[in-house]
């Protein structure tokens, strides 16, 4: 980790309400005002706890992006049977005409966008 990032982490004391709301939005969660306050404390604590990793010297460690030690795992371009439409839709909370159905998702839906 470079010095700039280290500095950034050290500076974390408490996340702002805005930051908590932003993280909640990315996680697709809606939080009440009380929850925002609650998680502001909890998330900050977690971050401060994880900061302990900063103490490790990683100068000589190679970046790892995979734990299995495997590489180059591929498959040939061959078709295998799919599951049926009925099976695919079996656990859908809502459906219509063979489609999964969700509530309208576009803010602006006066046209096919």
């Amino acid at each position: 980790m470079n010095d700039k990032n280290k500095q950034k982490l050290k500076n974390i004391k408490t996340l702002s309400e805005e930051e908590v709301k932003h993280i909640a939005k990315l996680a697709n969660l809606s939080l009440s005002n009380e929850e925002v306050k609650k998680f502001q404390g909890q998330l900050s604590e977690t971050l401060n706890f994880i900061q302990v990793l900063d103490e490790l010297n990683t100068e000589k460690a190679e970046p790892t992006n995979h734990a299995s030690g495997l590489s180059n795992i591929f498959r040939q371009d061959e078709i295998k049977p799919s599951i049926s439409q009925a099976e695919a839709l079996a656990n859908a909370p809502s459906l219509s005409d063979g489609f999964f159905k969700v509530k309208a998702i576009l803010e602006r839906n006066d046209d096919e966008i």
């Binding site: 219509s96 489609f99 999964f100 159905k101 969700v102 309208a104 998702i105 966008i113």
Partner: peptide
């Protein structure tokens, strides 16, 4: 693929995977 439509008069989105 999303299809934006109406089912029984209500706006909704249909998904085909």
């Amino acid at each position: 693929k999303l299809v934006h439509t109406q089912v029984k008069g209500k706006s909704c989105s249909l998904i085909d995977f």
